[in-house]
Amino acid sequence: MTDYKDIEILKLFQTEGQKERAFLLLVEKYQKRLYWHVRKIVIIHEDADDVIQNVFIKVWKNLEGFKSNAQLYTWLYKIATNEALSLLKTKKKNSIVHYEEFLGNSLSGDEYFNGDEIEIRLQKAILSLPERQRLVFNMRYFEELKYEEIAEILDLSVGALKASYYHARKKIEEFFKDG
């Protein structure tokens, strides 16, 4: 499949009769990146699946008004992050137990989790972090996004992000030392 540039997809989306094709190209181009980003936030596959569908429904509704001078993928990441955090908030509100702890404990029995014992511990350590540090750590460590890109997605300064990442790493190391 030809990898279309964002600008080409946007132009195609605005062409009469090509909206659906452009949208499918966009989904195919970004679905994996966005899914894994969301999955690391919500942990459970079924939740990530719901979130990713809502993300693309929003994209479909708002893509026409998207300003092409902004980066398309940062806009998509923004929507995905907000949707994932919103779902997490609802889940936490409805949970009678500490939700992050529940998520960490559910990993060992999760058929969609391949990690060994040390990876389960790493996920538990990440889940114990404050929300912002957790987001920054995942985006920097696993997704290897640049600080500038993360800054644009989370509307934060690069300096604040670097501090968050540093603290997140320190806390994870502490978590392993204590455990």
Binding site: E20, F23, L24, V27, E28, Q31, K32, Y35, W36, R39, K40, H45, I52, Q53, F56, I57, W60, Y112, F113, N114, G115, E119, Q123, Y141, F142
Partner: peptide, 24 residues
């Protein structure tokens, strides 16, 4: 290991675009 420990079924991403289009 700096690997993604999460996984999905093999066909998940093949069928996702159609599923998303239906939801839309």
């Amino acid at each position: 290991k700096k690997e993604n420990p999460f996984r999905v079924t093999d066909q998940y991403f093949d069928s996702l675009p159609e599923k998303i289009l239906e939801s839309v």
